Amino acid sequence: MITRYLMLGSLILATTACTTVEHDPTDRGTVSDAGSLDIVDVQAIDRHSAQQRPDDEADSFGAVGQPRLYSSVQGAYKGRPLTRHVGDYVKNLTQDLISNMEYVTSKTPVAVTNFALLDSDLQQTDLLGRQMSESFMHELHKFRIPVLDYKATDYIRVTGDGDFLLSRDYLDLNSSLPIEYVLTGTMAKHQGGVLVNARILGIESRAVVASAQTLIPFYVVDALIPSDGGASAGTKDGVKLSKG
């Protein structure tokens, strides 16, 4: 009799173990034995959540409702926060320039130009090239290197749009400034981002007295937003404008 009860108990335990192991293959996103979500399950949840939302909302937010970062390669947002910006990469470039810089001292004024597109005639730039020049002026000043802003005029222009000192009209600018060195550079699109080449040149000798190079990822570059929001001329916020 005892042997029969032991055999019956063993059979019940074996049946219970089999029931515990079995699971519905369509039940995705369950917690694994290690206590964490399986990667495949999380991706499936993300896809399912995106299908339940309108296209514009699905493209802008991840499965947990967090903003995604835009990628020029993928054309979609990546579910991770933006922890670095263009200024951080310019800071690293400046440190590299300072580490191998020659002749430039606290008594040799430096000008900073926009960075040119490498595959152009070197007379074209974009928002990234302009922002890098602004950031370089800040970083050089932190190192106590005298920086001359040649875009500054001799007067303040008061307009209905604001009060301005800077200008891009060469007729407004001083053509004779004590500039001895110039920080300039080029940009080239890379598969993973924008390859930046920076250098400091002697304005008269054209000799390179410092150089640096880095790769700025696309998700950092695309975080810069044009002031017009990318809208074409004659439009605002995607709405065509016309005179009444």
Rank of each mutant, 00 (worst) to 15 (best):
T105P: 15
T105R: 13
T105Q: 11
S106R: 15
S106G: 15
S106D: 14
S106C: 11
S106A: 14
S106T: 15
K107C: 11
K107I: 10
T108D: 04
T108G: 05
T108H: 14
T108K: 12
T108E: 05
T108R: 11
T108Q: 01
T108A: 07
P109D: 01
P109R: 06
P109E: 03
P109Y: 11
P109N: 04
P109T: 05
P109Q: 03
V110I: 13
V110C: 00
V110N: 14
V110P: 14
V110D: 02
V110S: 11
V110F: 03
A111V: 02
A111K: 00
A111T: 01
A111P: 05
V112P: 07
V112Y: 04
V112H: 09
T113L: 03
T113V: 03
N114E: 14
N114G: 07
N114K: 13
N114H: 13
F115V: 00
F115N: 00
F115H: 02
A116K: 04
A116I: 05
A116W: 08
L117G: 05
L117I: 11
L117N: 15
L118F: 12
L118A: 10
L118I: 09
L118Y: 10
D119P: 11
S120R: 13
S120V: 14
D121R: 00
L122N: 01
L122G: 03
L122I: 00
L122M: 01
Q123L: 04
Q123T: 12
Q123G: 10
Q124N: 09
Q124V: 06
T125G: 02
T125L: 01
D126C: 09
D126Q: 01
D126F: 06
D126M: 02
L127R: 08
L127E: 12
L127S: 12
L127C: 08
L127K: 12
L128W: 06
L128Q: 08
L128I: 11
G129A: 05
R130H: 02
R130P: 03
Q131H: 15
Q131L: 12
Q131S: 10
Q131V: 11
M132D: 04
M132C: 04
M132Q: 14
M132V: 07
S133L: 07
S133Q: 09
S133I: 06
S133T: 13
S133M: 08
S133A: 15
S133W: 04
E134Y: 10
E134N: 11
E134V: 12
S135M: 04
F136I: 01
F136A: 04
M137V: 11
M137W: 05
M137K: 09
